[in-house]
Nucleic acid binder design. Structure first.
Lengths: 261, 261
DNA sequence: TACCACAGGTTCAAATAATGAACCGATCCA
DNA sequence: TGGATCGGTTCATTATTTGAACCTGTGGTA
């Protein structure tokens, strides 16, 4: 693992619930030496990726990240393009929706929308990377990704997150066949003990999977009928998201989502 | 210069006009060895800070930046908080407005707003870092920053950008005295041959400067009257921006901006 | 007051990781 | 056919990163 990766990894410890982190906490979280962590932190700070609170001495994400995200969105809009799709879907189904894109062997959240009304809500942390094998989005992506990629992911190991997380490569593979056939991935309490979700893939310009659109609902409310009721809007959303990104659903599969929408 | 800084520096070459950059171009821009640059690029890509176009092989900013900016905005909103202030100001004065924050010894843009109507417009690149000595925002910040900081900046050297850029430390110092007295920094064609601008500082919770709000107008249109006409709205905007960030104008200076607004 | 625990931060010899000149293969163009 | 440019790789040399120990300040408490 290179020095750059070690430093950038530190940034991934931030989340909605952990907006600022001190040196000692970073040391605990990363398991690396204090001196090393400290040098990485100061170098990240010098570059504007972190910013230290002079009083508490804790670090938070810095302004450079804002500036760079501005550049990316200005030149290659994705969040602004997916936001209306995600919002519309969240409003019509009344549940939490999120769009995430493939980054290495995980998913990186791009936008999420909490529904307007409703009592119990699914909590979503846009800061957390999502594992492919334990999320409906991830399964939707894997089902339409090159086989070499899937093998690589499965070989890397499938950590259990809840009791229901699929940790066996064979089990995942057969589920992927199902997903490929139906076009939708459904998963029950495999990532969060209290959440069920279904996800549909989103594609890029040359028909390659780039991410997924997913609806998450409290498991107590997740009947089969409810899931089915959501499906058409979800498929429609994925088609819209793909189009909005300038992509196209792969022709040999396109009918699945068109039929539902 | 550490490895981390060298790698992160590569990200700063992106801008609105340069949304994707190939290996050779990075080598030219950075002046570093090809092998080194290539390793840095791939490591940044592995961490989601870059993303390579498989066809052109050029790199663009990656999804991790989006995710992190989401976390920052969710936990410490700044862009979303400053946007309405910047927009309102742009609408009332009919000129380009931007808010930028201090990052090391430069300014990092946070939000900008182009005015609605108007023929000639000032172009603003949210990806470019702004030098303190050559921008009205920068002077506004320096005028209210600790003296040690100013000395450090002036000692670091003052590169000329246009013919009118102040490159003499003494000249900058005396201009800063003026800015401190009036509360506003005015600069004519010191950063862009065709642009004049005026900036007002924005402060943080304990009365320290954190950035500036600035209006930029085409130099041809920048009469003294025009500048004066803009001033009240600009001062008001800076007061609002400071308040919105949970900051406070330093009591001994606050009257300057209140009087104008 | 003395003592302890824990926080952030620094030092310097030892170990490891970064570096760059040369090289490879592909593509484009005259 | 030759050469110019592109992205990418190799491996001995070199320089940077690393971490155990140390320093300093703070808050709690006996």
């Amino acid at each position: 693992m290179g020095t750059i990766t070690k430093a950038l990894d530190l940034l991934n410890f931030f989340s909605r619930k952990r907006p600022a982190i001190g040196l000692s906490e970073f040391v605990k979280l990363s398991g690396r030496d204090k001196a090393t962590v400290h040098r990485h932190l100061t170098e990240l700070e010098e570059n504007g990726f972190l910013q230290q609170n002079p009083e508490t001495r804790a670090y938070r994400l810095g302004p450079a990240i804002l500036r760079l995200s501005g550049v990316r969105e200005a030149t290659y809009p994705m969040r602004s393009v997916l936001r209306p799709v995600v919002r519309d879907l969240a409003d019509t189904v009344g549940e939490l929706v999120h769009a995430s894109v493939l980054q290495g062997e995980m998913l990186s959240p791009v936008v999420h929308a909490d529904p307007l009304g409703h009592g119990t809500q699914v909590h979503f942390d846009e800061g957390e990377m999502l594992p492919l094998h334990a999320t409906s989005s991830g399964l939707a992506v894997m089902a339409f990704a090159p086989d070499a990629f899937v093998s690589r992911v499965l070989k890397a190991g499938l950590p259990g997150i809840t009791q229901r997380t699929l940790t066996d490569a064979g089990a995942v593979r057969s589920l992927l066949d199902e997903v490929r056939a139906t076009g939708v991935a459904r998963l029950d309490r495999a990532f969060d003990e209290e959440v069920s979700s279904q996800g549909v893939p989103v594609f890029g310009p040359s028909g390659e999977v780039v991410g997924a659109l997913s609806v998450a609902i409290p498991a107590v409310r997740a009947s089969e009928e409810k899931m089915n009721a959501i499906l058409p809007a979800l498929c429609d959303g994925a088609v819209q998201a793909t189009r909005a990104l300038g992509g196209q659903m792969p022709p040999e599969h396109a009918a699945k989502w068109a039929a539902n929408a």
